[in-house]
Write a protein that binds this DNA or RNA. Structure first.
Lengths: 226, 226
DNA sequence: ATCCTCAATAATGTCGACAATTCGGTGTTG
DNA sequence: CAACACCGAATTGTCGACATTATTGAGGAT
């Protein structure tokens, strides 16, 4: 029989809401009225409540006493801070990954890099960007450091909003590809210093692009999702 | 009368429970039955439930569907991982702190170092250890990087269990004091590289001490709840 | 004795009702 | 006309009741 695990509606609500927020379905600063969300997701208010508490702790929504929840708006400053932390931690993970990447890890990473190159040659910036996350995640897996992986994953979901805009920068994909290739080479050579340096450089570029995107949006006072 | 904001019992329960866990009042792996906790803290079950969800997200308790909550037992491996992350992030904070420490920051840090030295001279290891956290926190404040500070603070609360045992290592306090002094000197000189290096070295020592403590407790195969 | 079945119990998951609070508007008063 | 107290709708906070699920222990069959 269809074992749909009816129990734990809370988990369900949490995932749906989280997905809704990170995918931009709910806008930053949008109010999340418990009742509305509840019947939108076809779950009870209790479940929504639990989900909101979780998301508050996670930093994706803010929860004010007696005043409800809203999607947390990450300030520009905070977005940069998050990216800085992410860079620091991912550099550490890259170092570890270089020390212990298995042949299987390297095979998979090579496959990804090849696919990325194809996307760049086809000038498919969006397709390229979609391969970005899996590539990084595979490195986290190779680093075998669950605590940090969890942390970095959580950070990433908080700063999604600006992630999209970084795709648009002209010439960014080519450069990004070269950086990814450098990281891969360092991992393949099992050279921790090189891997850490390459990852640090890559994320410094991302950070710079982020600054560029933030500058840009100040000129263009519209940044709502299309 | 004396309306102490009766609303928000959830916050209250959260703080009490958190305090109880980090202070060791509740032991690792101990089951947290909602009803018991509720009337122990004189709050409703709803509030306890919310608190547990928060603490689960925070990593201080584990929450299994239909099977309740228990105080999370941090494995040795995980404790080391946490300490590693903390080291990485605090090194970054020290770097930033060196760049932007104000005279007030430095005055305060000097005061703390002086007091630490006194404690060491009095051979008051426990008193010395109590000054440890404020010293680090002051550096975080100087770094002016709230995102990271929050993160590091959260990590620290997860690994409290082993923190105490590190005090016991012979000769540790003297060495720790010298490390702290080195960090202070680097901050005072506004030398980011030196500050980062000093902090990194300090926390590498802490990590080593942690490993030592973990080895030690393997000799004593008693860790079951009493 | 060991394993299995199955009721009894304890604890969690969910819901609906109601109290408490916030917020926007409305009418009153100076 | 502005400031202000106040009412009402909307929303959140809390509680108790009940359904659902795990766990325990006794009894029976092999």
């Amino acid at each position: 029989m269809a074992r749909t695990t009816v129990a734990e509606a809370g988990q369900h609500a949490y995932r749906r809401l989280r997905e809704g927020i990170t995918s931009g379905q709910f806008h930053p600063n949008e109010r999340l009225v418990e009742a509305s969300v509840a019947n939108r997701l076809s779950v009870g208010r209790t479940a929504v409540r639990a989900a909101l508490v979780r998301l508050d702790q996670e930093g994706l929504v803010t929860l004010e006493p007696n005043r409800g929840a809203r999607v947390r708006l990450i300030s520009d400053r905070e977005a940069l801070e998050i990216e800085e932390v992410r860079a620091t931690l991912e550099a550490m993970l890259a170092r570890r990954a270089a020390e212990r990447a298995t042949p299987a890890d390297l095979r998979e990473l090579r496959r990804m890099v090849v696919e990325m190159r194809q996307r760049v040659e086809e000038e498919d910036a969006f397709g390229y960007s979609a391969l970005n996350a899996p590539f990084h995640q595979r490195i986290w897996a190779a680093a075998d450091h669950p605590t940090t992986s969890r942390l970095v994953g959580s950070l990433k979901s908080q700063s999604i909003r600006l992630q999209y805009q970084t795709i648009l920068r002209p010439g960014r994909t080519e450069r990004s590809l070269r950086e990814h290739e450098a990281i891969f080479e360092a991992l393949k050579a099992h050279d921790p210093d090189a891997a850490e340096a390459a990852m640090r450089e890559h994320l410094a570029e991302v950070l710079a692009t982020l600054r560029w995107a933030i500058e840009g949006q100040h000129g263009t006072p519209r940044w709502l999702p299309g």
